[in-house]
Write a protein that binds this DNA or RNA. Structure first.
Length: 952
RNA sequence: GCGAGGGUAGCCAAGCUAGGCCAACGGCGGCGGACUCAAGAUCCGCUCCCGUAGGGGUCCAAGGGUUCGAAUCCCUUCCCUCGCACCA
């Protein structure tokens, strides 16, 4: 019977849908609840997504076979801007977007207009991609519970969550930097950018130098990323030709570049320009360092970028290679200084001030670095490397000198933030945001940092952190090494802006100008699954605080419990907590940790998540997948080509869930071929099933194969308990195929005993493989036993067939076969006779001594020498004892323990016929001594469990 | 820089958490054979080097160390991937 996966797959898919196979409700069996992040349908589904959702499915199917009542639900995440953005780009007719939709995801031309609303767009990909694919993949989802995060009832749930958090003081209002397009006058997301997607917000410290101008005090803020160098400032630079302005900033008079004026406005400062002029105005002036009170000279410099930060910079030549070179050049360029009315001698007199010590350099690190890199001009590209090197070393190893008072003797890294905050509080410093690189909007407009009012989640709250840490403690973190990543994330997690200005989702309950952002509206929604199908019957108006309080906190928590909520509470109570959350490993640092935070806060400890399994990334033919480049494989195509079972099996078998995997079509094809072979052989066994006796006569090889089956069950079960899908499927499938290969060679398969054995093996393996290849496994199991495999149970090892002795015995035959083959290969002969010599009895006596006394040559010899017969053999015994000590030491204990039960000679004799077939030669088995026919004098080489061999 | 994960034979990739059954599972590719008119599929064997007796040599990023014994433990160095926040 040929393997046509699509035929059986559609059959089972229909049957599951018809019977509502995976629709589950509370009952007596133990509840298991697994979830996976709901898909974000801002585009189609590719093979990487297929794996994401198959991992929990395999575990769900495993738990069901173990007898659990398992819930595996799904929903759709549509919150935020990506879908809105995608629709915008579609409506604008952007070529890239059209290509992704039409070429990568095969959206028909005449359907495109349906995608021109956000929910229409989402709906298309949900229906045409996600749902279809999930069903053809055979995911055991309870489809009654699906919803979107834009649904009214879901919003009521999120509203409850955020009102509760606000009431508990875990939400806070504040200002926050955002990317802001100065052309569109709107905040923008990374997706909206043409350039600078990698740009980071940098917080510059502004050191407020003072300038006396026409009798009034003007602040000249110098922007720096190294505020601790304030004591090393020797002069300042300004671009003499750029536009600058004197302006009232938050009530004080400042001098900054005209560009900076705009930045300050965006950063929520009150700015009023008093007059504008070029930078030359400040050249040659003296400004006062607010910390040291020293006056320093302002020099002209064309390397100053007036568009960056304030457009005025301070110079620390001792510690900045840039500044060092600039100062050297300024000193040499006397004419230029004079042209600006500066006395060149005054410039000449400027000396660097060293303010910290660092191991790698002498008094002036900047000078040393410049010399080391052989830099002789400020245009030298190596200057950047030198600067980076000095900055790094000084940051991690620079020790501040005595002028720093309380901070003297400290390393920069440890005190920079404190020092900065300190001077800021004294009014000497201020700060502003700037990007690390230029950022340009898709509209072509310049993007700047703006500060906006935002609501934050207070993830830095000490009590909340502590609670969440406890949640991590109680968690089954898979793999275990992710545990410290959660802890680490909790440690550094700060306030998180939880709202956006626009996008889909739930409005902030007390300010509907804002919408709750995607990472914040997806932290406890798993609880919503437990009631999602039944809450549909509750009028939206009824879903108030009281309703959800009743539902999640119980009747005691409210004055008047809502009856419907009380009813639904039973569902929630039955399914919660989550047993396993399967998610991506790169989400540990935000989403997964938020998930823990919110559970820890909003639910009682018994309802906290039990486990998180993290999943690795996918590659396609060794390369990153990319929908914009069309470098993706669509699940529908893969399933059509190979079948869903092959796709599932490949995805789960090629790596453990948390490891990265690589979809290679060549390998997938090979997986398909292996499954096809399995299918063919299974059907042969099923066709033979009528000949199989109830009480078979089992031979040694049959028992051996059955013993291997038991250890396979044991290993596969252990692996599944740990989510090791690769190990489990590898063991049950490929591992066992190796045993079968040997078995087919060794056994006479026409015997009733062999047929019984093969049927038993098939039945058990179908159960072990059912989670991975549910279609084929169900079909075959039903043909074999009359019921689908999912109605059967996960196998347990049968003690009757476990036998270390049988395994050791069969191992001897394998080893002997291999030895003979080796000799044949090496000698390139084709023997007529194979003589096998089992070691003499006295050698066995020595082995027994080793087994008894343990692998210690001295002790063994002591014991053995008590035998007179052995004493006579002296050195020979000593050599043998050494060999056997090695032999025992290298073998596992349970194997050593059964050695004495094994009768080597009869084991080989029982395999004579097999060996004769294998080598097409006569096989004779002798015992060393005992008048063995030994023409080549080989018998003496025999050692217990390593017979001597002679070929002729 | 900080945090995490890696570097294994032509390629992919096990094993390393509990050191010895490791020349190192398995797959792909390659070579040879069986079957066949032939191809495909399937099956069998080989695939680090040397070797006319089951052996020996060298090897698991590089270099040290611990040990009777290390791919596996410790130290140092080099290289790669991912995350580092307002992006889902």
């Amino acid at each position: 019977m040929s393997y046509d996966p699509r035929e059986i797959e559609t059959k089972w898919q229909d049957r599951w849908a018809r019977e509502g196979q995976y629709e589950v409700d509370p009952q007596d069996d133990e509840a298991t609840f697994v979830t996976v992040p709901y898909p974000y349908p801002s585009g189609g589904m590719h093979i990487g997504h297929a794996r994401t959702y198959t991992v929990p499915d395999v575990y769900a199917r495993y738990r069901r076979l173990q007898g659990d009542n398992v819930l595996f639900p799904i929903a759709w995440h549509v919150t935020g801007t990506p879908i809105v953005g995608a629709v915008e780009r579609l409506k604008k007719g952007e070529a890239d977007q059209l290509s992704v939709l039409k070429d990568t995801y095969d959206v028909p031309e005449d359907t495109l207009q349906d995608l021109e609303t956000p929910m229409g767009f989402a709906r298309y990909f949900v229906d045409e991609h996600y749902k279809k694919n999930m069903k053809s993949l055979g995911l055991s989802i309870d489809w009654r519970r699906e919803f979107t995060t834009n649904d009214d009832r879901y919003s009521k749930f999120i509203t409850w969550q955020y009102e509760t958090l606000k009431e508990r003081g875990l939400l806070e209002k504040g200002l926050h930097p955002v990317k802001y397009c100065t052309n569109e006058q709107n905040p923008v997301t990374t997706h909206d950018l043409l350039e600078g997607e990698e740009a980071e917000f940098q917080e510059y410290t502004l050191i407020k130098f003072g300038w006396e101008s026409d009798g009034s005090d003007v602040t000249v803020p110098m922007a720096t990323l190294r505020p601790e160098t304030v004591y090393g400032v020797t002069n300042a630079y300004i671009d003499p030709d750029a536009e600058y302005a004197r302006a009232k900033v938050d009530g004080a008079e400042w001098l900054v570049s005209s560009a900076a004026v705009e930045k300050f406005r965006l950063q929520e400062r009150d700015v009023e320009v008093l007059e504008e002029f070029t930078g030359e105005r400040l050249v040659g002036e003296r400004v006062t360092n607010p910390v040291t009170q020293h006056d320093v000279l302002v020099l002209p410099a064309d390397f100053v970028d007036a568009d960056n930060a304030t457009g005025v910079v301070m110079s620390v030549p001792a510690h900045s290679p840039d500044d060092w070179m600039a100062l050297q050049e300024a000193k040499q360029d006397r004419d230029r200084m004079e042209s600006y009315g500066i006395d060149p001698d005054e410039v000449e007199a400027i000396e660097p001030t060293a303010i910290l010590d660092v191991e790698e350099y002498g008094e002036f690190p900047a000078r040393d670095a410049v010399e080391e890199h052989g830099i002789d001009s400020s245009d030298d590209p190596a200057l950047e490397d030198a600067t980076q090197e000095v900055y790094n070393r000084e940051f991690h190893g620079g020790v501040l000198r005595e002028m720093y008072g309380d901070y003297a003797g400290e390393v920069v890294e440890d005190v920079r933030d404190d020092l900065k905050a300190d001077y800021e509080s004294r009014g000497s410093f201020d700060s502003m945001y700037e990007f690390s690189e230029e950022v340009v909007c898709r509209c072509g407009g310049d993007v700047e940092v703006a500060k906006q009012d935002t609501w934050f989640l207070r993830y830095n709250d000490a009590e909340w952190k502590e609670k969440t840490k406890r949640a991590v403690e109680g968690l089954d973190a898979i793999p275990e090494n992710t545990r410290e990543q959660y802890d680490h994330t909790i440690d550094w997690l700060n306030e998180w802006p939880a709202i956006r200005n626009y996008g889909l989702g739930t409005r902030l309950p007390w300010d509907d100008e804002f919408v709750i952002e995607p990472l914040s509206d997806s932290t406890i929604y798993m609880a919503y699954y437990t009631i999602a199908h039944r809450i549909e019957d509750v009028p939206v108006e009824e879903l108030d605080r009281n309703f959800f309080d009743t539902l999640f906190m119980g009747p005691e928590a409210v004055d008047e419990p809502n009856e419907t909520a009380l009813d639904l509470r039973e569902e929630w109570d039955y399914w919660y907590p989550i047993d396993y959350r399967c998610s991506a490993n790169d989400l540990i640092s935000n989403h997964l940790t938020f998930f823990l935070y919110h559970h820890a806060e909003l639910f009682e400890e018994p309802k906290w998540p039990q486990g998180i399994t993290v999943m690795g990334m996918g590659l396609l033919e060794g390369q990153k997948m990319s929908s914009s480049k069309g470098h993706v494989v669509l699940p529908a195509e893969a399933i059509e080509e190979y079948g869903a079972d092959t796709v599932r099996f490949f995805l789960l078998n090629s790596a453990e869930p948390w490891q990265d995997y690589d979809w290679r079509s060549e390998q997938v094809q090979s997986t398909h071929d292996q499954l096809a072979r399995f299918w063919t052989r299974a059907n042969e066994i099923i066709e033979d099933a009528s000949d199989v006796p109830d009480d078979p006569d089992l031979k040694h090889v049959d028992r051996w194969l059955l013993a291997k089956l038991q250890s396979t069950v044991r290993e596969a079960t252990d692996a599944m308990e740990n989510f090791e899908t690769r190990t489990a499927s590898q063991t049950a499938f490929y591992g066992f195929e190796e045993h079968l290969k040997w078995y087919r060679k060794r056994a006479d398969l026409d015997r009733p005993g062999a047929k019984w054995t093969l049927e038993e093996v098939l039945r058990t393996r179908l159960r072990l493989l059912a989670p991975f290849v549910p279609f084929a496994a169900n079909e075959l199991h039903e043909r074999l036993d009359g019921v689908p495999v999912e109605d059967a149970a996960w196998p347990e090892p049968d003690p009757e067939f476990e036998s270390a002795r049988t395994e050791v015995e069969e191992g001897l035959i394998e080893a002997l076969t291999e030895d003979v083959r080796d000799i044949v290969d090496v000698t390139e002969t084709d023997p007529d006779t194979v003589r096998v010599y089992v070691a003499a009895d006295w050698k066995t006596t020595v082995l027994e001594a080793v087994v008894d006394t343990g692998p210690d040559v001295g002790a063994v010899m002591g014991k053995v020498m008590q035998h007179e017969e052995l004493r006579e053999k002296g050195n020979e015994v000593n050599d043998l004892a050494q060999d056997l000590v090695e032999f025992v030491r290298e073998r596992p204990d349970d194997e050593v323990a059964v050695l004495s039960e094994v009768d080597e000679q009869s084991v080989y004799e029982s395999a004579e016929r097999f060996l004769e077939r294998e080598f097409d030669a006569d096989v004779e088995v002798y015992r060393e001594g005992e008048d063995a026919y030994d023409p080549a004098d080989k018998a003496g080489n025999a050692v217990p469990f390593r017979p001597a061999v002679h070929l002729e």
